[in-house]
Amino acid sequence: MVTLIAKRFGFMVFTMIVVSLILFILLETDLTGDPAIRVLGQFSNEEQRELWREKHGYNQPMLLRYVKWLGNFATGDLGESIRFKGPVADVMLPRLWNTAILGFWTFAIMIPLSLTLGVLSGMKEGSKLDRSISVFGILTTSVPEFASAVIFSALFVFTLKWLPGTSSMSGGFEFKQLILPALVLIVYDFGYVARMTRASMAEVMTSQYIRTAILKGLPYKSVIVKHALRNALIAPFTVIMLQINWLLSGVIVVEFFFAYKGFGALILEASLNNDIALLEACAMVAVCVAVTTQTLADIGYTFLNPRIRFS
């Protein structure tokens, strides 16, 4: 177990370094175009560009620049955002926080809901409940986020007038504004996780050890809770961990639609405006989260699965 964690951790660091190297080569060298042009624009003249290069240390040897760049990153100096005219950290952190809030509420509702329904429908495969949950799950997952965003807005904002149509939180945090984006995300992701859980549960329910448990004369509740759930939840656990990535950077559409100031929207803005420092920082954060959740998923999987844990 310790070896496993150490190994996964080592792998994590390695991945991050590789990604940083790729980022550096793509954005900070001449390989994909002169960074000075990228920052100063097509119509800058050579003199301006040279001044800029000198000022930002672009004339130093490549390797030295990379090490410096990495060192700055590691110590929290993420550079200046051109677009927002300020330190990148100051721009990014509140955005991350917003995304975390949105993600938290989405998860807090979506996970219990989809696990419960998934387990219920997997318990009695082919039952009415199972079929209705499956159909509902497929339906919600197959409607893209922007479509459901439009539909929900039409319903709750324009017809019923219960909720505000934008979630920019310009007057401070307001829970009401969070509801619609969260709802769209929940509806979209629910079907996926629920169907995953259902498949896993259904498989467990047909396994021989469940038959053993039933034929031991255990109460049905204990067959489900003690014998089935733990094995059935291994697969969904991994899936859920991977959903965190999606919530971080995969929900640009929803954030954009509701003008929610989240991390996804920030990436969009940064790339539209050639804000290289900001883009680099966002990319590094996204990769960091991706690798971390993957690691947690692996470790959790091992932990839930004694067969791997003790071999």
Partner: peptide, 8 residues
């Protein structure tokens, strides 16, 4: 093996 619960 199949009739024993692998995680208990």
């Amino acid at each position: 093996f199949a009739s024993l619960n692998p995680s208990l």
